[in-house]
Design a protein around this nucleic acid. Structure first.
Length: 920
RNA sequence: GCGGAUGUGGCGUAAUUGGUAGCCGCGCCAGACUUAGGAUCUGGUGCCGAAAGGCGUGGGGGUUCGAGUCCCUUCAUCCGCACCA
């Protein structure tokens, strides 16, 4: 008889569900701890073994924290809107809600089997009107707020209007699009439409007509983080630039706070660095250059105002608005040709041609602000319209791109910073002394920068400025399966619905495709208008809308009066531990921080950073197996014999391979093509080759948790996933090792049970040796969990069980605390043992045992003794030996004579408790 | 090109943070039990060597009584960003 995991696991899953063991409420007697898993999108394929890795880690941590006396919030829900369900709807006509519901049920079934401690009463789904009511509510708040740069926070638009009414916009310092100055009087004279148009430049959610990422295959625009190298992240379809009117979120208003906040959160350095790069802060100056024979001025942004005397020409982006104005008649045809060519090229092509230099002279000249020298103005697509001002002053001596351009077009190169050799290439470093630079000659770069900025400001032709790479987030999607905007249009002007009208529910449509005229799918909904008959917005919100504040909703998921109650948010505050993949670094993890900061500004949440600590679980890679078919035959040769044949490696389903030995019968059945396959074996076996690849259906290397749970149980799966290696590291999944963990579980069970599986635990007092094993384990396991080192914790349990097994320990005094500790990792087994030990209730509320120094300490120490750094023998000495006694004992030890060779040691290093090194 | 991370047995990994390199598990080898073994148990297992011993943490160099750990340099792999002025 043996441990019956199937029965035991089923029993406790039912117990937990019936007793609502994991239900969590506010409890001011206990400190709170909020552990969150990243919001899953329930895909049709279900979970493979890689998905639950982070969930298991966070579950262990949650259970551990509960046993340590914390009130732990550990919820789960679904990011239920999304493209796959909608693409499926387009193909089959099945409503995405049905697909989504089915996928959620499948997910839930799989999650339940793993034994997670989620409080399912708090489940949320982004597609549930009770949930997205608050997504829409937040959008209304964003629409009704602007960002005040003076107070560095969001403030109501009504305050801005009051300001306009008394003083116009002159003294307003807001994050906004360029707005011409107006007085209070001018404001009052504006029509409603004009006023709304002005306000749109200030709103944190605003409608704007700009270049967007358009993905024709998906029929929608995409945010910057949803595009990678010119292709959509989801689906890999080409993306083009297109001018469209779309909703945006003014995330750029928060750029500096998003950057600054990174200093105060415990995230991996790599994710923080990715976010810093994405935000892309650069310090420099904007400078206005006059244009010869023109009134217009060209504004440039530069991080190197110190090099201004090295600026010998100007470059505008082909899309720059001044291009038409300043191009001379003579150069118009050439310039137009270049603009058309540049415009036609996709981002993809543009990126592929980074190395080639191209550009076109406009015929006009700018005037150097200090020297008055003429500077030819070019257009070139190495200058991006979307960054800075879309124009640069080119300093070929100190910028490699300008250098290449100048060489290509034969333009002047003037060295202004010492340290390089401009014959060979540009010198881009910010180190050196200024030369050829008039009033800054002899200064170091840093001082030159501030002196030039001061002079520019005095002359009124420039100013110090901080520029960000971060762009406002495109918030409209031309799709069906998303949150409707709470927006209607009156005479073409957008207005938001009153909060009392929320939720604005997603309407039914006949098809999930755009209309024949190219309108988004919501245009198909009949009666898509307000009670008064005003048309409603036809776009829907993007995926990140619903996932940006879900962690707040978990605190108070059923509240119909507010996104979250004051009570709940003041108790739970924010997420203490967030576990999830690193792929959300520039998407979700930055949007949520922005969203949370806004909600903080309006007083809804109490912490300005949503996720205190972030752990990124590494990817689980697949381990593929191969068979080797001899070309042109149906004959397969075993791995080590393959060299002698001309072969094609073929992926074989890893589920019919055990320890790299192919199950021949299963292989023949696996695919009709191989029904009559023949084999060349080695030692009577067919050995497969293997390789580490992505876990994917197409490689036949997918392992799903259900099969493993069926054969080994959920506790074994949980332990094995943790045992695999450090949580943050990418590692291959190799099912071969799971049996070791399975053995451990049964070994542990046998400590509590006799040969015939009878209960065996005795109340006899434990020996010192047994206590030592236990207390060492308590100490190490506790420390390991605190530092998320779950793999070493599992290995510590194994050592403990091995040692207790050797000691033949069956004492309650030892085995009861062990059952409590193991219950975080193997909750079913832990719960069963806890009850067998005679306890009622649940082991989840048992107290995590405490270790005592007196049991852990050794009274002797085994000193490794080395000679010249090489360990030669070991010497057991009392733990309290002094340096002198240790040294004496070492030198008189019989083994020492051989290594001393009669010489007197030059030096003897004794590190008490650690090591002895004798230098000869 | 820039930035980040990682390189330790046949494999996944560990190492008290500068102090016995290889814990734990897989695999492999040997043995026990067994009608059988892809079950269970026991022992062994870094490499070379019969042994004594030598070598050994991607490579090279350095600091130190002592380096997987610190410094310099180099190579490889993975990830992120990429004409960002």
């Amino acid at each position: 008889m043996d441990y019956n995991f199937r029965e035991v696991e089923k029993k406790w899953r039912r117990f937990w569900s019936e007793n609502k063991t994991y239900k969590t409420d506010i409890d001011r007697q206990k400190p709170k701890f909020y552990v969150l898993d990243m919001f899953p999108y329930p895909s049709g394929a279900g979970l493979h073994v890689g998905h639950p890795l982070g969930y298991i880690a966070s579950d262990i941590y949650s259970r551990f924290k509960r046993q340590k006396g914390f009130n732990v919030l550990h919820p789960m829900g679904y990011d239920a809107y999304g493209l796959p369900a909608e693409q499926y709807a387009i193909q089959t006509g099945q409503h995405p809600a049905i697909t989504t519901e089915r996928n959620i049920n499948r997910y839930r079934e799989q999650l339940d089997k793993i034994g997670f401690s989620y409080d399912w009463d708090r489940e949320v789904r982004t597609c549930d009107p009770g949930y997205y009511k608050w997504t829409q509510w937040t959008f209304i708040q964003l629409f009704n707020h602007y960002y005040n740069n003076k107070t560095r926070k969001a403030e109501p638009i009504s305050q801005l209007v009051a300001e306009f009414e008394t003083r116009g916009n002159a003294v307003v310092d807001a994050a906004c699009d360029p707005v011409p100055a107006f007085s209070a009087g001018q404001w009052k004279q504006m029509s409603e439409a004009q006023q709304q148009q002005v306000l749109m430049n200030y709103r944190l959610a605003y409608l704007s007509d700009t270049m967007v990422n358009w993905c024709p295959a998906l029929g929608t625009v995409l945010a910057n983080d949803e595009v990678k190298e010119g292709f959509s992240v989801r689906g890999g379809h080409p993306v083009e630039r297109k001018k469209m009117q779309q909703w945006f979120l003014r995330i750029t208003a928060y750029a500096d706070r998003l950057l600054e906040g990174l200093e105060r959160i415990e995230w991996s350095e790599s994710i923080k660095e990715i976010q810093r790069n994405w935000i892309g802060r650069s310090e420099g100056a904007t400078i206005f250059f006059g244009v010869k024979d023109h009134d217009s001025k060209i504004e440039v942004f530069t991080t190197r105002p110190d090099t201004i005397f090295g600026a010998t020409f100007m470059v505008l982006a082909p899309e720059h608005e001044l291009v038409k104005q300043i191009t001379t008649r003579e150069f118009t045809p050439e310039v137009e040709k270049y603009v058309t060519m540049a415009g036609r090229r996709s981002d993809r092509e543009r990126m592929a041609e980074v190395k080639t230099v191209s550009g076109q002279f406009t015929g006009s000249y700018a005037v150097h602000p200090f020297s008055g020298k003429p500077m030819p103005i070019y257009i070139a697509d190495y200058v991006l319209a979307g960054y800075g001002t879309g124009a640069i002053m080119a300093v070929p001596a100190h910028d490699s791109r300008d250098y290449a351009f100048a060489k290509h077009f034969g333009l002047d190169i003037v060295e202004v910073v010492t340290g390089g050799n401009i014959e060979e290439g540009s010198y881009d470093a910010k180190e050196g002394t200024m030369i050829n630079s008039d009033f800054i000659n002899g200064l170091e770069v840093k001082d030159a920068i501030s002196k030039v900025i001061a002079r520019l400001e005095k002359m009124g032709i420039g100013t110090g400025r901080i520029n960000f790479r971060l762009r406002d987030a495109i918030f409209s999607r031309q799709r069906y399966w998303g949150e409707p905007f709470p927006v209607y249009y009156k005479e073409g002007i957008p207005y938001v619905l009153d909060v009392s009208e929320l939720p604005l529910e997603l309407p039914e449509v006949d098809k999930y495709l755009p209309t024949e005229t190219g309108e988004p799918p919501l245009a198909r909904a009949s009666g898509w208008q307000t009670k008064e008959g005003y048309p409603l917005e036809r776009n829907t919100m993007p995926g990140f809308a619903g996932s940006s504040a879900y962690y707040i909703r978990y605190m108070d998921p059923h509240n119909e009066q507010a996104l979250v109650s004051k009570d709940a948010v003041e108790y739970w505050e924010n997420v203490d531990l967030y576990v999830g993949g690193a792929e959300h670094a520039t998407g979700h993890l930055i949007y949520s921080r922005f969203w949370n900061k806004f909600l903080f500004d309006i007083g809804l949440v109490v912490k300005d950073e949503p996720f205190k600590k972030l752990i990124n679980q590494g990817m689980i890679q697949g381990r593929s197996n191969f068979v080797y078919r001899i070309k042109g035959t149906n004959k397969f040769v075993s791995y080590n014999l393959r060299k002698d044949y001309d072969i094609t490696p073929i992926h074989v389903d890893v589920n019919i391979v055990h320890h790299d030995v192919l199950d021949l019968e299963a292989f023949r059945k696996w695919n009709p093509e191989y029904k009559n396959a023949e084999f060349i074996l080695e030692d009577g076996k067919y050995i497969c080759g293997w390789e580490i690849e992505k876990m994917s259906k197409s490689f036949n290397n997918v392992q799903n948790p259900d099969d493993l749970i069926e054969s080994y149980g959920a506790d074994t799966l949980r332990l094995y996933e943790m045992f695999l290696g450090p949580i943050e590291q990418a590692k291959p999944w190799d099912t071969n090792g799971i049996e070791g963990v399975f053995r451990f579980i049964r070994k542990l069970w046998r400590l509590y049970h006799g040969k015939n599986n009878e209960w065996y635990v005795a109340d006899d007092p434990a020996t010192d040796q047994e206590k030592k094993v236990l207390h060492k384990t308590i100490k190490k396991v506790g420390e390991d969990i605190e530092k998320f080192s779950f793999n070493t914790a599992v290995s510590t349990f194994m050592i403990c069980v091995n040692e207790l097994g050797d000691l033949g320990c069956n004492k309650r005094e030892i085995l009861e605390p062990l059952a409590v500790m193991i219950s975080s990792f193997a909750p079913h087994l832990g719960e069963e043992l806890w009850h067998l030990l005679g306890h009622g209730g649940s082991v989840t509320v048992a107290e995590f045992p405490k270790w005592e120094e007196k049991f852990v300490a050794d009274d002797t120490i085994t000193y490794p003794v080395s000679f010249n750094g090489k360990t030669r023998f070991k010497l057991v000495l009392p733990a309290d030996s002094t340096k002198e006694t240790v040294e004496a004992a070492v030198l008189t030890a019989p083994e020492a004579a051989k290594w001393l060779e009669g010489k007197v040691p030059k030096r003897v290093i004794v590190v008490p408790g650690k090591i002895v090194n004798v230098v000869i």
